[in-house]
Design a protein around this nucleic acid. Structure first.
Lengths: 354, 354
DNA sequence: CTGAAAGCGCTTACAG
DNA sequence: CTGAAAGCGCTTACAG
């Protein structure tokens, strides 16, 4: 392995000077700098990042952490489930943004131990953390907030000394989805909603209610069907719904996510109901797959790129602004959403027309 | 930060002894060991992995590398594309297996520089590499093979001093898919195939041909439709196919992947063709989504868990068997596949019956 | 502008 | 079984 020592020798300077040149210190003569460059090139030198991390007490590494359920779940064991394809699509941008800032992404093999969890991250000298906390009650989160490692949460309302969060305007998204249906003449609108005890689910439920209210429509809580986030549960829930209700008792469904909508579509199809002829369906997220469902899915697009960009930028700036802790907590970032109309929604057809 | 120094002091021993106790050396008295354990517990000590990496010249980190196209593509920028959902599903297992072995997963922010690529991995002291090389021509791969960092490739035929690969039995999978259709009475079977210049695509094409041959059916190269791996291209290709050919000129389609099959289904549906009534369709991979397509997709299941387990186990054993290089190259691992019958395939309906 | 020296937190021969 | 010492490859006050 070629070290800075060898570069120094070849360039006829000390290791200190090599280090300065490498780190862009102004206190290096043009001459020395040039010789060092040459030596580096001819030796193919690359600094040892591990040694750098040790002495700087900080690595150029950002950890991606996930809190999901209280099982020993890893990042992908959760994202890999279909209901989280949305987050998966985000990871692309996460990685890209982080790489662009010249940080590595680390997926720690975190043991579930609550105490050692934070400590082990500290011992890895991670510069910061991008965290997705699907289960906000996870004890590790509190520890993380206290530890004051720069952290940006995605989709979970956690703030601390050195942490903040970014999330879509879920309320507004759900409101627009519902409003869209109302404008098409729908009045009896079912919502299949998940995680109403969490920030995402509850915001979406509120948006649904708000839209009805704004339109002066009655809110029938019986039309609110709790369901899991995943395709299978949404499918089962829809089956139950179809068993419980007469065909004309509702004319539209707002699904909590696209993957849930896929389950909804399948159940409707099995019952011989046409979409949007008999029932209109709206998803949420705008996952890639929406274009290929039958029919293509009208949905609420979350601006993943904007979310991630905001998250990473904020994180980097927290990291690089050094120890300056924001005791008050940093303001969260709410990114805008957008209604994407495809073919799963249409005007309501009145019973007599049917 | 609490260091081994403090543990040593509290336990009344030297740092060397603490280190030995920590690393399970037998050369520590039961007494000392006990005091050290107590000190560790009371101080909440956790060793600094960065310092360990420096002195051991190796970190407990495995890099996940991806070679895809010649663009500056990151792991997820490629896996995030729908055509690679298959690999995404694998990552879950990759992470799990790696975590189980107490290694961290690193996604390096690899600059595209070919030379520094390997060097930068070396400088991160990664213990080993899991590599997915969709573009086997990528120059970085050769460099990697030469560098002899323990590496296991997934789905690409690359072997070197300290590297091998794991892949499904693609040929057999494709052969079984085709054979399944033949047994249902199909004779004119189209295949939408991708990457026939690569190991996966070519193996699958061979399997298709082999099945026809074994059944004594003629091989009509006109029925082989090249296409990209993604849904959109498969959709377009199917549209072309439907324009070029009479409805009865073929009765089944073997798609190169499930995501391609989704595009196929959509195109068929748009043309008013029923599946499997008019055309049978088989996918490849058995992605989660297959259960929710319309109709649920018959496909070839790749045993992702087995692939990953084999890959990680092999990698770890390469890492831990130390420098013992296998000049001859290690044998590759071929994992078995399985035909999963769902509802997108059915017996051929003869023209006169139609 | 530059170098000698100390130090980051650990491990590991080497002696005992 | 244990400790003092050297060392992993770098950075950074401190002097000059």
């Amino acid at each position: 392995m070629v070290t800075s020592e060898q570069v120094a020798r070849l360039a006829g300077v000390s290791r200190a000077t090599v280090s300065r040149a490498l780190n862009g210190s102004p206190r290096v003569s043009a001459e020395a700098r040039k010789r060092i460059q040459e030596a580096i090139a001819s030796l193919g030198y690359e600094p040892d990042v591990v040694a750098q991390s040790l002495v700087r007490q900080r690595s150029r590494t950002i950890a991606l952490c996930l809190f999901y359920g209280d099982r020993k779940s890893t990042v992908f064991s959760s994202f890999g489930e279909t209901q989280h394809y949305f987050y998966l699509d985000m990871l692309r941008d996460v990685e890209q943004e982080i790489a662009a800032a010249h940080y590595d992404l680390l997926l720690p093999s975190s043991p579930y131990a609550q105490k050692n969890y934070v400590r082990s991250l500290q011992m890895r000298h991670v510069a910061g953390i991008i965290a997705v906390a699907m289960n906000p009650a996870d004890a590790r989160i509190k520890a993380l907030l206290e530890a004051a490692i720069p952290t940006v949460f995605i989709d979970s309302i956690s703030q601390g000394k050195n942490s903040t969060y970014v999330t879509s305007d879920n309320l507004e998204g759900s409101r627009q989805a519902t409003e869209h249906l109302i404008q098409l003449g729908h009045q009896r609108i079912v919502t299949l909603i998940s995680g109403t005890d969490g920030p995402i689910g509850s915001a979406r439920l509120t948006g649904y209610r708000q839209a009805l209210q704004q339109a002066g429509l009655p809110i029938d809580d019986q039309l609110i069907y709790p369901s899991g986030w995943n395709t299978e549960e949404a499918y089962q829930t829809t089956l139950t719904l179809l068993q419980e209700r007469q065909p004309r008792d509702f004319t539209a469904i707002v699904a909590g996510s696209d993957l849930m909508a896929i389950g909804v579509l399948r159940a409707l199809h099995q019952h011989g109901l046409r979409v949007p002829g008999d029932v209109s369906v709206v998803g949420f997220d705008d996952v890639n797959l929406c274009r290929y469902t039958e029919p293509p899915l009208t949905t609420i697009r979350q601006n993943r790129a904007a979310m991630v960009q905001a998250a990473v930028q904020r994180l980097i700036s927290m990291i690089e602004s050094e120890d300056e802790q924001h005791a008050s907590g940093l303001p969260p970032i709410i990114t805008p959403i957008e209604l994407v109309m495809r073919e799963s929604t249409g005007p309501v057809t009145l019973p007599d027309q049917a």
